[in-house]
Design a protein around this nucleic acid. Structure first.
Lengths: 207, 207
DNA sequence: ACAGTTATGTAATAATGTTACCAACTTTCA
DNA sequence: TGAAAGTTGGTAACATTATTACATAACTGT
């Protein structure tokens, strides 16, 4: 049994119809990629939509000056709503995507994506669920930027990051944090310093 | 011919199948509402999804302290992606919606919404288009909050507002602008004062 | 050892957010 | 009519966050 096949069974056997699972195995290409690798750049055409079988992908937005802003993570068993969206509309990718943790991804051809929407109720539900969940994630993200102060946002960020990589030790630089949060490195350094004085547990470890 | 019927024909005769148009006329309820009226509150159940036949609706997010943040506008012929999303997922509304300009709205029962997705390709396309377009609108909004300075954001806001209400005269208070932009009234007053000195045309008119 | 790179600390200044208070004006209602 | 209450915008003072510049330490490869 291939790795794709066993992952598929493990994650989706109670979600997708038997027939759909078979089609997926036949029609989808599965790849692996190491942490740090870029999966998709902004503006790039979306020729197939990704579903993460293992690991974590990071989805972020890059502005004209090359600044990054983290939108959300895509974890095991999940799809990327923006890729679905851009793919179905024939639009170039509105996001950049990189591997956060070593990843196994399955790519669904756009044509199949469309066909299955009408053929398999479970697939339609999966796609709509993904759109909705991540849409709401993004809106909650706006809540954070628009309403929360930096110290709260930083704590949320560190907790989420820790949850995603499933470890209390975060091996990242102040600069990386600032980039993903869309703020300045100095701000992060300042806040971490003051947080350290208040909190007894360690948020970040230097290299 | 009813108003609903004529609006439908005008906007959608080249978009939806003849049969779908007939179904819409039979199954959908159409209402009108004056500017200012609340259409949907956050947390409220979504029992039918709206499509704007005439006028403009404003979609915004409210935080725990009651602060507002503008997400996007829904104009003639458009649906509300978040209502679609929450409706299909059986989730309570993640947004608040109010009438920006006197409005005529058609409500599609959730059940029909689902049925038509598989029955009519044009309806599926309409729903997906709406999701995608507004998803990308929201992301661009994040670009603004995360990357742009307040003066740029304010100018963009005023231009967009002016475009939406189709008039160069904006009859709104500094407080309202601040609310929708998720900032403070003093900030807006300060910026408008300095903008007035630079720009020759008038952005806002007092009451 | 050396230059180059990265990560962090620090200071100065600019931009934005927050609170408080004031004056002008409008609306409400007795 | 007129007093009270609410709305709107101006201003000041201060807090928080953003930006830029520079210094130091650790590490990298030659």
């Amino acid at each position: 049994m291939t790795e794709q096949s066993s992952s598929l069974q493990k994650i989706y056997s109670n979600v997708f119809e038997e027939e759909l699972l078979k089609e997926i195995e036949e029609k989808c290409l599965t790849i692996t990629a190491p942490a740090g690798q870029t999966l998709m750049n902004m503006g790039q055409p979306v020729s197939a939509v990704p579903i993460v079988l293992k690991g974590v992908a990071k989805v972020s937005r890059i502005n004209d000056e090359g600044q990054e802003f983290l939108l959300y993570y895509v974890k095991e068993g999940e799809g990327c709503a923006i890729a679905f969206a851009c793919g179905m509309m024939g639009q170039p990718s509105a996001i950049k995507s990189t591997v956060e943790e070593d990843i196994t991804i399955m790519f669904v051809p756009l044509q199949k994506m469309e066909q299955w929407m009408t053929k398999y109720p479970s697939w339609k539900k999966f796609v709509m669920d993904t759109m909705v969940t991540e849409f709401i994630d993004v809106i909650k993200n706006i809540d954070n930027i628009a309403f929360k102060k930096m110290d709260d946002r930083l704590i949320s960020y560190l907790k989420e990051k820790s949850r995603i990589i499933d470890s209390p030790l975060l091996n990242i630089s102040h600069q990386q944090i600032a980039d993903e949060m869309g703020t300045n490195r100095v701000v992060i350094s300042r806040l971490l310093k003051s947080l350290k004085m208040i909190r007894s547990f360690c948020f970040s470890a230097t290299r």
